[in-house]
Design a protein around this nucleic acid. Structure first.
Lengths: 180, 180
DNA sequence: TTGGAATGTCAACAAGGCTGACATAAAATG
DNA sequence: CATTTTATGTCAGCCTTGTTGACATTCCAA
């Protein structure tokens, strides 16, 4: 038995992006798709490796990174906002936020209009950690971008956006435009 | 304070891929890099969403998926091989493998030459689960590829490979060529 | 024969998901 | 004004999946 053979849905012709240049056929063999899947797996490991090391040194985990990232991204965001973006339960997020607030990395201010809401901000310390984390991640990302070249970067982003869930894509687009 | 502003390492000119066409400059602003980072975050969520649902229905988790995937990928692979690829401790992997073996999805045969080693294979049931998982993942990947177009796909893969750790890249390349 | 490599297993622990239940304050609605 | 809904926080408990440390077994190799 050799499950690695190109089986099942064979070649899928037709490109479809409307690009007039070059190859207009996409040969999406299972083999090629599998390579993409594995590339995604390994690349994500590389993608998180540097922040993970930094976080471990500070006694935090990936969950803290995500919270810090998006609070920096959209200062003053509410807890509910963050919950929607991160896609976890409020109990999970709260555990993380509590630690960050207690450690003085995040400040939680009662909402101006709606006093039920808490607006979240990074303190100086929090911003410093965020910088440390994103600097490390940007170094790797920049290196990857530069070695791949501008066209590859555009393609990279295009495929990633197509790979998101539509609802996530919605959050992503919202983030791309405004902040909070 | 507005940490969202394009600060720090500003524009990095110079492209460098040697492509004679179009834009030869890569403007890697922190802003653009951050978009790439967030795209990676959201896309990975989409990437794992379908398998996660299937796995949950079977009472398994992502760790089982990874094991099943790479055993299918390289039938007869040894435990040590798998440990190197997956990058976890043998205790973690063993827990997962034990469950899969007990449930009859994976067969562990004593090595022919070296009897210390175990060669791992999927059973029919295991192969069926693998197919279910990779079918789901391929559907999404294929959709993303098709909507992005061939050039984007090439760029996607190029950037991902550049993003891997070099040691991971080594495993990836080994997998790309031979199977065990 | 002895050392080391490959494997398996036990125990304990931590991070970070989850559910369910409950409390509080404030907004919204009747 | 009374009630309901919303936003948030919190407690308790469970699961998966990672970790470390210790130890046993098997078997290749020097």
């Amino acid at each position: 038995m050799d499950p690695d053979v190109i089986s099942g849905a064979m070649c899928m012709a037709e490109g479809g992006t409307g690009g007039p240049g070059g190859e207009s056929l996409l040969f999406l063999t299972d083999e090629q798709l599998r390579k993409g899947i594995e590339a995604m797996f390994f690349a994500y490991r590389g993608f998180t490796a540097d922040p993970d090391r930094i976080l471990a040194a500070h006694g935090y985990g990936r969950a803290h990174h995500r919270a810090v990232h998006f609070i920096n991204r959209a200062p003053g965001t509410t807890v509910n906002n963050l919950l929607n973006i991160l896609g976890v339960t409020k109990q999970s997020l709260n555990r993380v936020l509590r630690a960050l607030i207690e450690d003085g990395l995040v400040e939680s201010r009662v909402g101006a209009q709606d006093k039920r809401q808490r607006n979240l901000f990074l303190t100086e310390t929090g911003a410093a950690l965020e910088r440390e984390l994103s600097d490390a991640q940007r170094v790797r990302m920049r290196a990857a971008y530069r070695s791949a070249g501008p066209e590859a970067v555009a393609g990279f982003r295009t495929v990633l956006e197509a790979m998101m869930d539509t609802d996530l894509h919605h959050h992503f687009k919202a983030l791309k435009e405004a902040g909070s």
